Simulated scan of single mutants.
Amino acid sequence: MEKCLNQNLFKNLYEAKEIIEGWRNEYNQLRPHSSLDNLTPTEYAKKISGDY
């Protein structure tokens, strides 16, 4: 989160919420996680369910 805040200058609260939500979604859902064998959460869910 600190990385997101350090890289952006927000014009207002609405813009801050939009940018932070986009960053949070990317960080938690779209990027690979080392704890998940370097897969995204979606890829990992498919892998453990046998659909990968």
Rank of each mutant, 00 (worst) to 15 (best):
F10D: 08
L36A: 01
T40N: 07
F10L: 01
G50M: 01
R24L: 08
Y44F: 15
H33R: 05
I20P: 00
G22I: 02
G22D: 08
G22H: 06
Y44G: 07
Y14I: 13
E21R: 07
N8Y: 12
K3T: 14
L30K: 06
Q29R: 08
W23Y: 09
T40L: 02
Y14G: 03
E18W: 00
K11H: 11
F10W: 01
E26I: 05
S34I: 08
K46Y: 06
P32D: 04
E21M: 07
I20Q: 01
N6R: 12
Y14T: 13
I19R: 01
Y52N: 11
L13M: 10
W23K: 12
S35P: 00
N6C: 11
K46Q: 13
Y27K: 13
P41Q: 06
Y14R: 15
W23C: 15
K47N: 05
D37G: 04
M1C: 08
L36H: 06
E15S: 14
M1E: 13
I19C: 00
R24I: 03
Y44E: 10
S34N: 08
T42D: 15
G50A: 00
G22V: 02
W23M: 10
T42E: 15
L13T: 07
K17Q: 11
L39P: 01
H33S: 12
I19P: 00
W23D: 12
I20C: 05
A45L: 11
L13Y: 12
H33K: 09
G50P: 02
R31G: 02
L36F: 09
D51H: 08
Y44M: 08
K11L: 13
S35F: 03
I19K: 01
L30V: 03
Y44R: 05
Y44H: 10
K3G: 12
S34F: 06
L5A: 06
L36R: 06
I48Q: 04
N38D: 15
E2Q: 14
N38P: 00
I48A: 02
N38T: 03
L9I: 14
N28M: 06
R31H: 04
F10M: 02
D37E: 14
M1Q: 11
E43M: 08
N25S: 05
